[in-house]
Simulated scan of single mutants.
Amino acid sequence: MIRLIAIPSMLLAELASGNVAAQVSATPETFTGTHRNESINGRPETATITDGKFFIQLTEEQYRAGGYRPAYETLSTRIVRRLPVRKDTKE
Score class of each variant (00 low, 15 high):
1 M>P: 02
3 R>H: 08
5 I>T: 08
7 I>C: 03
8 P>T: 04
10 M>Q: 11
11 L>V: 11
12 L>F: 10
12 L>W: 07
14 E>L: 15
15 L>S: 11
16 A>P: 00
16 A>K: 13
17 S>T: 13
19 N>Q: 13
22 A>K: 14
24 V>C: 01
27 T>Y: 00
28 P>N: 06
28 P>H: 06
32 T>N: 07
32 T>F: 08
36 R>H: 02
37 N>S: 12
38 E>G: 02
40 I>T: 10
40 I>H: 12
42 G>W: 02
46 T>E: 09
46 T>M: 12
48 T>M: 09
53 K>A: 10
53 K>M: 08
53 K>W: 01
54 F>C: 04
58 L>A: 04
58 L>D: 05
60 E>N: 06
61 E>R: 14
65 A>L: 08
65 A>P: 01
65 A>N: 13
67 G>P: 06
68 Y>V: 05
69 R>M: 10
69 R>V: 08
69 R>L: 12
70 P>G: 06
72 Y>A: 00
72 Y>E: 04
72 Y>M: 01
72 Y>V: 03
73 E>H: 08
73 E>N: 11
75 L>S: 03
77 T>I: 11
77 T>K: 14
79 I>H: 08
80 V>Q: 08
81 R>M: 06
81 R>I: 05
84 P>T: 06
85 V>N: 02
86 R>S: 07
87 K>I: 08
87 K>A: 07
87 K>V: 06
88 D>R: 10
88 D>P: 02
88 D>T: 10
88 D>Y: 01
88 D>N: 15
